[in-house]
């Protein structure tokens, strides 16, 4: 319901986000938890790419996240790669109970930096935090990895309990906002993955136009 409430506000920015990582790490569940505030316990492998969007409030600014949830399976790589371009942020997800998914992180990281942008803001998410008993990757180890790789942000999340899920998205968005404010990122640049939202457009363009825009804006 709170989502709906936010929907009535217009957004200041629109960020393109990616969720990447090996198959079975819980990317779609993270997204579902983020958007629906529910855990999807009977989830299947994603085919190709799916999509979700949500407006969040970051430091008083409303940011609409356009999130592409990619399939982790190798065969979809060619399909999913095409969605990398112009992403402003990414959640790089691994499964703390599976070292294999952790080991693949470097490849994912390279892919993301290469296909999306060098400036892409990435947050590392060690998912399935609730399955601590089966942990194969320690928090320390992963945070070291994050530090070594251009200071990725890092969080351990649980799509099951919802712990740190919203935080992951919000932190990522906040960092992008900071970068915009510091001038490090230029929203006007092509392929930045950032667009002015309709609220910002309202100031930029004629009010009538903004109205038409807001009318097109709605709950996704």
């Amino acid at each position: 319901m709170s989502k709906q409430l936010k929907m009535t506000y217009s957004s200041d920015f629109l960020f393109k986000f990616l969720v990447i990582g090996n198959a079975g790490t819980g990317k779609s569940c993270l997204l579902h938890q983020f958007i629906e505030k529910k855990f999807k316990d009977d989830s299947n492998h994603t085919i190709g790419v799916e999509f979700g969007s949500k407006i969040i409030n970051v430091g008083g600014k409303y940011v609409k996240l356009q999130i592409w949830d990619t399939a982790g399976q190798e065969r979809f790589r060619s399909v999913t790669r095409s969605y990398y371009r112009g992403a402003a942020g990414a959640l790089l997800v691994y499964d703390i109970t599976s070292r294999e998914t952790y080991n693949a992180l470097t490849n994912w990281l390279t892919d993301a930096r290469m296909l999306a942008s060098q400036n892409i803001v990435i947050i590392l998410c060690g998912n399935k935090k609730d399955l601590d008993a089966d942990r194969e990757v320690t928090f320390l180890e992963a945070s070291r990895f994050a530090q070594e790789n251009a200071e990725l942000m890092f969080l351990e999340t649980s799509a099951l309990t919802g712990e740190n899920v919203e935080e992951a998205f919000v932190q990522c968005a906040r960092k992008i906002l900071n970068k915009i404010e510091s001038g490090e990122l230029d929203p006007e640049r092509m392929g930045s993955g950032i667009q002015y939202g309709d609220a910002a457009l309202r100031q930029l363009r004629s009010p009538r136009r903004a109205q038409a825009q807001s009318a097109q804006e709605c709950g996704c």
């Binding site: 779609s28 579902h32 316990d41 999509f51």
Partner: peptide, 17 residues
């Protein structure tokens, strides 16, 4: 809403993937 499918049938369609 965004196709977080959870269905046996679909599973069977893709499980080999």
């Amino acid at each position: 809403s965004n196709g977080y499918e959870s269905d046996e049938q679909e599973k069977s369609a893709y499980q080999e993937y």
